[in-house]
């Protein structure tokens, strides 16, 4: 059996001394899309950010391995260069750094990691333009500051554009669907599907199953109260849509 892209075992995380994740165990094999669903405050975003290496989270127990390597021992930038991508729920605006500049710097950082030469300017533009077409983005956004003055939908599309250009081995998409209208949701879904391949994996963090209409997950996990309460296939997401989360929480309380 091949090494999973992501293997999380008994992960406990605290923020400012308060336990948020209380024993997460999760395995994402290569080529699979996993959805993590759950109510507000359940720890979904915390899981994504801890895996990406954001400061401010204390791992108190457990482990996380990325393609067999201890992820928690790596600096955030090393995780990114190794092929882990975090799509932000609230992408920041960076005035003065234009989109193309950041994309190229990020891509070259990744290429250097793989001992590849920096990408030629012409090839870079061709690559980015092709992916912008996939995301139905205006090329003018390339020369604007990163996310500067972008609408909510443009910011989310820009995150997926970055993902497509960087071609990560594992994409952690933190509520990429939030705030999107139905058309934008389809486009984002198409972008995520473009990345799907037998060697790449995606973890979708989401509240609702509507994104899963466009990106059909291999597995669905329900995260609540800092734990994964249940895992299943796409049917689980549909059931959650019908019944909400309370019944699962009640079951857990009863147990």
């Amino acid at each position: 059996m091949s090494t999973p892209v992501l293997q999380v075992e008994d992960l406990h995380v605290s923020v400012a001394g308060t336990p948020v994740l209380k024993g997460i165990t999760l395995t994402v094999p290569a080529g699979e899309v996993h959805a993590i669903m759950g109510p507000n405050g359940s720890g979904k975003s915390t899981l994504a950010h801890v895996l990406a290496g954001r400061p401010g989270y204390e791992v108190t127990r457990g482990s996380a391995r990325f393609e067999g390597v201890d992820l928690l021992a790596m600096a955030p930038e090393a995780r990114a260069r190794a092929g882990l991508f975090l799509g932000f729920q609230y992408p920041v605006e960076i005035p003065g750094v234009n989109n193309a500049y950041l994309l190229k710097a990020a891509l070259n950082a990744r290429r250097r990691e793989r001992s590849e030469p920096e990408i030629d300017a012409f090839d870079f533009l061709a690559l980015v333009r092709a992916q912008m077409r996939t995301m139905q983005m205006d090329e003018n956004l390339l020369t604007r500051g990163v996310n500067e003055g972008f609408s909510g939908g443009e910011k989310k599309r820009n995150e997926i554009l970055q993902m497509l250009v960087l071609e990560p081995r594992l994409a952690l998409l933190d509520e990429t669907d939030s705030g999107l209208d139905i058309d934008a949701l389809k486009i984002v879904g198409r972008g995520i599907n473009t990345l799907r391949s037998p060697t790449r994996s995606v973890v979708l963090v989401t509240h609702y199953q509507r994104l899963l209409e466009y990106v059909v997950p291999d597995r669905v996990h329900v995260l609540a109260r800092g734990r994964i309460l249940r895992s299943g296939d796409r049917e689980l997401a549909l059931e959650l849509e019908r019944r909400g989360y309370d019944w699962l929480l009640e079951e857990q309380s009863a147990a």
């Binding site: 600096a75 992408p91 920041v92 960076i94 003065g96």
Partner: peptide, 27 residues
């Protein structure tokens, strides 16, 4: 938050700081 965003895109911390400073002065 800006620093982490750049790190999460693979930039070295020193490069990320330099980039943000350049952007600030670039105005």
């Amino acid at each position: 938050d800006l620093l982490f965003y750049l790190l999460a895109r693979g930039l070295e911390p020193a490069a990320a700081r330099a980039l943000l400073k350049s952007a600030f002065l670039g105005e």
